[in-house]
Amino acid sequence: MLPDMAELSANAALIVIDVQKGFEDPYFGRRDNPAAEDNIVALIRAWRAAGRPIVLVRHDSPEGSPLAPESPGNALKDVVVAAFEGAEPHLFVTKNVNSAFYGKPDLDGWLRERGIDQIVIIGIQTNMCNETTARMGGNLGYDVLYPIDAMHTFDAVGPDGETVTAEELTRATAASLHHGRFARVVRTTDLLGASAGI
């Protein structure tokens, strides 16, 4: 059972955001949560085994970025590709801003057409595209589950010139989403247990 006695819907959609090779570039700096990819793969496999919908999201950055379409870094990480074992996601979204709800094709429309009102967000980065998508999902009325250990982020420099660590940013994101009731912050094991129970 998930925290707050929540249940995992039979058609809960797994939104896998920006798990791309470009995030391995030194440009992004130091990251947290080395277990992120293992947890991402575990959830993809659990969703595939249960027959639940999976949405893959890819960020197409402007030219010069490690995530630019013409760059090798634009490609999904090998572990994600392998987790699908040759199968296709139910929906593939491309975007060039933070929220997956502003990508193409229209994620919100696709979910509503299928009667999906619960989404699970995983991927990269915790406090950037993942958090933005979670906030917008909450505003749109979705029940958002946020497995905080199935994602990671990077250290960032604040306006005062001080470095905020990736761990601090992750903790702040978890608190902000929880306190603001945008999402329910959970762990991968919570979802794997709930998935096995159906």
Rank of each mutant, 00 (worst) to 15 (best):
V80F: 11
V19P: 01
R30F: 12
R58S: 13
V186T: 00
V93E: 07
G137H: 00
R114I: 00
R45L: 03
G158F: 04
F154M: 01
Y142R: 00
F101P: 13
L2K: 09
H179V: 15
E7K: 11
G103C: 03
Q118N: 09
L140W: 01
L145P: 15
I44M: 11
I124M: 14
D117H: 04
I148Y: 00
E24I: 13
Q20G: 02
Q20R: 08
N98I: 03
D38M: 14
V81R: 15
T165K: 05
Y27G: 04
G193I: 00
V19Q: 00
L177R: 07
L177S: 06
L8C: 01
L145G: 10
N11K: 08
S176G: 15
V144H: 07
V157I: 11
D106R: 01
L67P: 04
D160S: 10
T189P: 08
F182N: 03
E168K: 09
V97T: 15
E70S: 14
E113F: 11
N130F: 09
R114T: 03
P62L: 14
R45T: 01
W110C: 13
S176M: 13
T163V: 13
G158N: 15
E167S: 09
I44A: 03
A83N: 02
E85I: 02
I17P: 02
V80H: 11
V157D: 03
L8G: 05
G141W: 09
T163F: 02
I15P: 07
V55E: 09
H152I: 04
V57P: 02
L140F: 03
L169Y: 10
A87S: 08
G115L: 06
T132K: 08
N74D: 09
E88Q: 09
G109W: 00
L177F: 05
K95I: 13
F182V: 07
F182H: 11
A100D: 00
K95W: 07
I40L: 12
E70Y: 08
P72W: 14
V144L: 03
G22S: 01
L140V: 04
N74K: 08
S195C: 15
P26F: 05
R45V: 03
V186L: 11
V16Y: 04
K104A: 13
D38P: 10
M1N: 12
A83L: 00
A49F: 12
N96A: 10
A83F: 04
L76P: 07
E7H: 11
R181E: 15
C129T: 07
N39G: 06
Q118A: 01
F23C: 09
W110M: 09
L67H: 06
P105G: 02
P105A: 06
S65A: 07
D38R: 03
